[in-house]
Each structure stands twice: as C-alpha cells, then as structure tokens.
C-alpha cells in the first residue's frame, strides 16, 4: 500500500475532486479512493477527517446532514464555488509541475 509524501501533498485535490463530481459522505470517499486506485492507495480515516476539517475551515467545502441511513443521519459534503476554483487551479498547477518533474524523471535507462 502506497502512502507517500507526494500523495499526501495532494490529498486536498483528491478529495475535492471526488466531492466535485457529486456530494459524498466520509466512508463513500475512502471507498471510492481505494476502488479507483485498485487498492494501491488507501486513505486513513484519521487523515480523511482532518482534511474535511481543513477544507471546511477554508470554505472550500461545506457539509449538511442527509437522510437517515443505518440508524443515523449521514454527514454529506458539498463543494463550494471557491472550492471549484481552487480545484481547477490545483489541476493547472499539477499539469505544470508534472511537465517539469518529467523532464528529470523520464528518458534515462
């Protein structure tokens, strides 16, 4: 299971992306991350909720309580317009970073 510092630096973007697609709740997000990466990356729940807290503080996401399931109300997260702008900026930054790093990581046997 990969859990590198490089990924850790992009957790905000990963989670914003998943919430961007549709409103989701905590466990759904951690499941989705494992599923999409074929279990190569699993997020620790502790990390996940710390990120939620941080993103909410920065007003990039907001939360609301959904319908009752499993005996309690699920807490869903929704992206704000600020969050969308931030995510797009992050995508742009990543594209440029990738190009730069590739210059030094590719092509040498």
């Amino acid at each position: 299971m990969l859990n590198s510092d490089i990924i850790r630096g992009h957790l905000d973007s990963i989670i914003l992306r998943l919430i961007f697609e549709k409103d989701r709740y905590g466990y759904e997000i951690s499941k989705e991350i494992s599923l999409r990466t074929n279990d190569q990356f699993q997020i620790k729940e502790a990390t996940l909720y710390a990120v939620f807290q941080r993103l909410e503080k920065k007003e990039l996401i907001e939360s609301y309580f959904g319908d009752i399931t499993h005996g309690a109300k699920r807490r869903y997260y929704r992206i704000t317009s600020l969050g969308k702008a931030y995510y797009r900026q992050q995508v742009e930054d990543w594209r440029m970073t990738k190009e730069i790093i590739d210059v030094f990581m590719e092509g040498l046997e």
Binding site: Q42, K44, E45, A46, A50, Q53, R54
Partner: peptide, 12 residues
Amino acid sequence: DFGSIEDIKKEL
C-alpha cells in the same frame, strides 16, 4: 485502518 488521531487533533 483508522490511523493516528494526531492529524485530527491538530486541525481541531
């Protein structure tokens, strides 16, 4: 799988 509470502690 939950991991360490430290991250949450810092944020809260």
